[in-house]
Deep mutational scan, measured.
Amino acid sequence: MDVRRLKVNELREELQRRGLDTRGLKAELAERLQAALEAEEP
């Protein structure tokens, strides 16, 4: 998933699904989601 191409509301939805903080600027949201995705990979 390319988090840079997601819209802010899409980033927030993905973060919320993972129980993560949904507050912040788009860059912060993308960074948070990217870190979560990398942590999920085996």
Rank of each mutant, 00 (worst) to 15 (best):
T22G: 11
E13Y: 08
E28F: 00
E38V: 08
E10V: 04
L15C: 07
A35C: 13
E10F: 11
L11G: 02
A27V: 10
E31F: 04
A30M: 14
G24P: 01
L29N: 02
E38H: 04
A27S: 14
R5H: 08
R32E: 02
Q16W: 07
K7F: 03
G19K: 04
E13S: 06
L25S: 13
T22K: 06
N9S: 12
E31S: 14
E13V: 07
R18P: 01
M1T: 03
E14R: 02
E13M: 13
A30N: 08
L37A: 05
R4K: 14
L33K: 02
D21S: 08
A36C: 10
L25Y: 08
E40M: 10
R18H: 11
P42D: 14
G19T: 03
E38I: 15
D2C: 03
L37D: 01
R5M: 12
L25W: 06
T22R: 05
Q34A: 08
D21H: 01
L20H: 06
R5V: 08
A30L: 13
Q34K: 14
G19D: 02
L11P: 01
L20Y: 02
L11V: 05
E28C: 07
A39W: 06
L33E: 04
L25T: 13
G19V: 01
E10N: 03
E40K: 13
E41W: 04
R32I: 00
A30W: 05
L15K: 02
R32W: 00
E13P: 02
E31T: 09
L33Q: 05
V3H: 01
R4S: 15
E40C: 07
Q16M: 12
L11E: 02
L6C: 00
V8W: 07
R17P: 01
A36H: 13
R18F: 02
L33R: 02
E38P: 02
R17E: 08
L20D: 07
L6K: 04
R12T: 12
K26M: 13
K26C: 07
R17W: 05
L15H: 03
Q16R: 12
G24L: 00
A27H: 15
E28K: 04
R17C: 10
R23N: 14
V8M: 15
K26I: 03
A36V: 11
A36D: 06
L11H: 00
K7I: 06
L29I: 08
M1H: 00
R32T: 03
L15A: 02
R23H: 08
A30T: 09
N9K: 08
G24T: 01
V8Q: 14
L20R: 05
R32D: 02
V3D: 08
R12F: 04
K7N: 15
R4G: 10
V8S: 08
E38K: 15
E28L: 02
E14T: 03
V3Y: 09
T22L: 06
L25G: 14
K7C: 07
E13Q: 07
R23F: 08
E38R: 08
L37E: 08
D2S: 08
E10A: 05
Q34S: 13
Q34F: 09
A39S: 11
R12M: 10
M1E: 00
Q34M: 13
A36W: 06
L6H: 02
E41A: 09
K7G: 10
Q34D: 11
E31L: 11
T22W: 09
R18N: 01
R23E: 14
D2I: 07
A39R: 11
E41Q: 11
A35L: 09
E38C: 11
G24H: 01
D21L: 04
V8H: 06
T22C: 07
E28Q: 07
L15T: 00
D21G: 05
V8D: 13
A30I: 15
R5A: 09
V3I: 14
G24M: 01
E13D: 14
R12E: 12
D2K: 10
L33D: 05
E28G: 04
L37G: 06
G24F: 00
V3M: 13
V3T: 14
E31P: 14
E28D: 11
R32N: 05
R17K: 15
R4W: 14
E10H: 05
R4T: 15
L11R: 02
D21F: 02
E14N: 07
N9W: 05
K26G: 10
L11M: 15
V3Q: 11
D21C: 05
L20E: 08
E28N: 00
E13L: 06
L15W: 00
R23A: 15
L11F: 05
L37S: 05
A39D: 14
D21W: 01
A35H: 13
E38N: 05
G19M: 07
E40S: 12
Q34I: 07
R4F: 15
V8A: 12
L25A: 15
L29E: 04
L6I: 05
K26Q: 14
L6A: 03
E40V: 09
R4I: 10
L37R: 07
L6R: 02
V8K: 03
E14V: 02
L6G: 01
E13W: 06
E31I: 10
A36N: 05
L33H: 03
P42A: 10
L33Y: 14
R32P: 02
R18A: 02
K7V: 05
L25R: 14
E41G: 12
E41T: 10
L37F: 07
A35I: 06
D2N: 06
L6Q: 04
G19P: 01
E41R: 11
A39Y: 07
E14I: 05
A27K: 12
L6M: 14
A36K: 10
L33N: 00
R5G: 08
A39N: 12
L37Q: 09
A39I: 11
V3A: 11
E28A: 10
V8L: 10
R18T: 01
V8E: 15
E14A: 06
L20T: 02
L20I: 03
A27C: 13
G24E: 03
A36P: 03
Q34N: 09
E40F: 04
T22P: 08
Q34Y: 03
E31K: 06
N9T: 13
L37H: 07
D21R: 04
Q34E: 14
K7E: 13
K26W: 12
N9R: 10
L29G: 04
L25H: 09
K26A: 12
A27G: 13
E41F: 06
Q34C: 10
N9F: 02
L25D: 15
A39T: 11
A30Q: 09
E13A: 12
E28H: 01
Q16D: 13
R4P: 13
R12K: 10
Q34L: 07
M1G: 00
A27Q: 11
G24A: 00
P42Q: 10
G19N: 15
T22A: 13
A35Q: 13
R4D: 14
L33S: 03
R18D: 02
R4N: 12
A39Q: 13
R5W: 03
K7T: 15
R32Y: 00
L37I: 06
E41H: 12
E14G: 05
E14Q: 05
E14H: 04
A30G: 09
N9D: 12
E41M: 00
L29D: 05
R5K: 09
A35V: 11
R18C: 02
T22E: 12
L29T: 04
G24D: 02
E38L: 07
R5Y: 13
R32S: 03
G19L: 03
E28S: 05
M1L: 04
Q34T: 09
R5P: 04
E38Y: 09
E38D: 11
L6V: 02
A35S: 09
A27N: 15
L15P: 04
L20C: 11
T22D: 15
T22M: 07
N9P: 12
M1F: 08
V3R: 05
L11Q: 01
V8G: 06
L37V: 10
G19W: 01
R32K: 07
L15E: 02
R12Q: 15
R17V: 10
P42E: 12
L33F: 08
R32A: 03
K7W: 01
V8T: 11
L11S: 01
A27D: 08
R12D: 02
R32H: 00
A39E: 13
R18Y: 15
L20W: 04
E28M: 10
Q34R: 11
L25Q: 14
K7Y: 03
Q34H: 07
N9G: 11
K26P: 13
L15S: 03
G19F: 02
G24Q: 00
L20V: 06
V3F: 10
R18K: 07
R23G: 14
R4M: 15
E40G: 09
L15D: 01
E13R: 06
V3G: 05
R23D: 14
E40I: 08
L15I: 02
